[in-house]
Write a protein that binds this DNA or RNA. Structure first.
Lengths: 342, 342
DNA sequence: ATAACTAAAGTAAACCTTAAAGTAATGTTT
DNA sequence: AAACATTACTTTAAGGTTTACTTTAGTTAT
């Protein structure tokens, strides 16, 4: 047996007042006297009233909900960002609707449409590695839905972005590698169609150029941001008997793929083949050997993104000036890419 | 400038038909002729119509939405389960609303209320380590909202559950440890207030009893499922100079905490102190040393939970018979808890 | 004493969609 | 030719809430 949900009307009838009075009372509207408000709240509590959010949002044209779209979730970087976004949202009385695109542009598009259909008040998104059709973002803009792009952003002008300094981060890593003596450096670059891939690649190239080291195109492989891509790229070079001394990977999962492949073929990191990656995860220090990396401060990214979004939501109808934040990274050295010590 | 959203009515006016005709056409209702349907769909497309889900759900009294509540998200186990739930949901045309309780019972309660207020069609939940007040679940039941508890479940009769065989899993791990010669075995047990903690503890005890090994109460520490708890528990024993030879941890993060602490005080795993844990994560094989564990098949858990839920949603108004699935685990041996080989 | 105000409520309409019931024009059956 | 079915729509109402406007009674100012 299923109880019918309690509505404002049910409460109103009990007290012989109008629904509007109940609605107002529950929202502490000054129209309603303190005594009545108290009475109403008591009955609501007793009856176990929960407002119908669908009806509320429909009526109020506001959902107090923020949509978050990420390409992956079982991934430290995004998991951590989401957790931080949740914290800020919760503190500000917003709900989060999380959508996972699984790196599929088609799915991403559908998610964004759903979020708009749900009338979310704003969107925070990190796009997939294959997102090329940018029309949907134009639609979002047209609809006036505030949106903040984080980490992975499309090629659009005049939008809010929170990025990390990918180029400089990559540069720092490669410069360090060169300084400790590496010359044969490869780069598993993910997708350079997307800003993070492209900028990390640029940082890599800039460092190599600065120190006049030739870049071997065979050692630059593009493909993706996941484990399998790291694994396959490594295997390709290994089978061609053409491995560099150090591989700089575009992401932490890619490095993990390299670890898997290396261990499978019996090569020891860091002595036979060395690795450094972009992106931090709690476990890296426990890998064998502990993986050095360029750290991305997820908490700051989440916080900045939420700040911008909430600001945008509030000032929705005033003019819009895009905000673009760039967050700095830090090189964390552990058991790889540390030179002579081994 | 913000466009007003396009509604059914806008389309209807353009074609001089009624809103209902448009509504039906867009849903391929047989009432409407193929020609009209095509015309309507074209205009809808041109105008960039997206249905207002709030209104739709309010009217249809069905949201095609499933609420998922988990205690943590930046955690391989939950991340992976969520990803799998998403896949099934997506394939069945359901949206997922994900809520993260951050192991806080209060937050969990609020989330459940919000989900009900959002009129989700069903809920999948893994409760926090501190959830004690079970009244909210009674409310869910009263409201007739289908719910499936996974992994961490409350003490309630007649509810759907998808569990892993925690007790047997723990038993297998400890039995293995004993067989390779361990006698001084400790257990960082998380919270035994909750089924997973309690059952893993029971499995541990049962194995110890079976082989007549005394359990040292100093080595059984309760506290939580996160890294910090593993770290602190280890440190406590270390400082008391009272470490066992092997620690069986209730979760993978707890083991990670042990790794951190051990490395900090200069003890080598597995020789100085050995570890095995409950719960798998992709990275474990790259830890130093690779961490052995009891594997929980996340894909199966997610699949079973979704199956039960979808079934429940469909047969909502018929009688309800709870389903209780228990999923088996597998012992995965890597570089810890493997005995003489070291 | 009465106009002007205030407090505390009420009424009507709107938000957008869908379900249910109704209609008018055709076609089919016996 | 009467009775029934079908097609392709339209009309009405409902879902639960909020917003904007109105009413009523009581209070204050003049």
């Amino acid at each position: 047996m299923r109880d019918k949900a309690i509505t404002l009307n049910d409460i109103a009838k009990k007290l012989n007042v109008s629904t509007v009075t109940v609605s107002k009372a529950l929202r502490n509207h000054p129209d309603i006297s303190i005594t009545t408000t108290k009475e109403i709240k008591k009955i609501a509590e007793d009856l176990g009233y929960t407002p119908n959010i669908m009806a509320r949002n429909l009526s109020a044209r506001k959902s107090n909900t923020i949509g978050v779209v990420v390409p992956k979730i079982a991934h430290f970087f995004f998991g951590s960002i989401i957790e931080n976004i949740y914290d800020v949202a919760f503190a500000n009385n917003y709900e989060i609707i999380l959508m996972v695109s699984e790196e599929k542009a088609e799915r991403e598009k559908k998610h964004i449409q759903t979020l708009m259909a749900m009338k979310v008040d704003g969107i925070i998104i990190s796009i997939t590695q294959e997102t090329k059709d940018l029309e949907i973002f134009e639609t979002v803009r047209k609809r006036g839905v505030p949106i903040v792009f984080i980490d992975r952003v499309p090629e659009i002008k005049n939008v809010n972005t929170v990025l990390i300094n990918d180029k400089l981060g990559a540069f720092k890593a490669i410069e360090h590698a060169i300084k400790i003596g590496y010359r044969k450096i490869g780069h598993f670059a993910g997708y350079t169609d997307i800003n993070i891939g492209r900028n990390r690649m640029n940082g890599f190239k800039e460092a190599m150029n600065k120190y006049n080291i030739e870049i071997n195109p065979d050692w630059i492989i593009e493909g993706g941001f996941g484990e399998n891509y790291g694994y396959e790229s490594f295997m390709r070079l290994y089978k061609a008997n053409n491995l560099p001394d150090l591989i700089f990977t575009v992401s932490y999962p890619v490095a993990l793929g390299v670890y898997m492949a290396a261990s499978e073929v019996g090569l020891k990191i860091p002595n036979d083949i060395d690795v450094i990656c972009f992106g931090n995860a709690k476990v890296q220090k426990f890998l064998s050997p502990p993986l050095s990396c360029v750290d991305q401060p997820t908490e700051i990214i989440a916080l900045e993104a939420m700040n911008i979004l909430l600001e945008n939501i509030e000032k929705r109808d005033e003019g819009f000036t895009p905000i673009n934040k760039v967050i700095d990274t830090e090189l964390i050295l552990r058991g790889t890419c540390i030179g002579e010590e081994n």
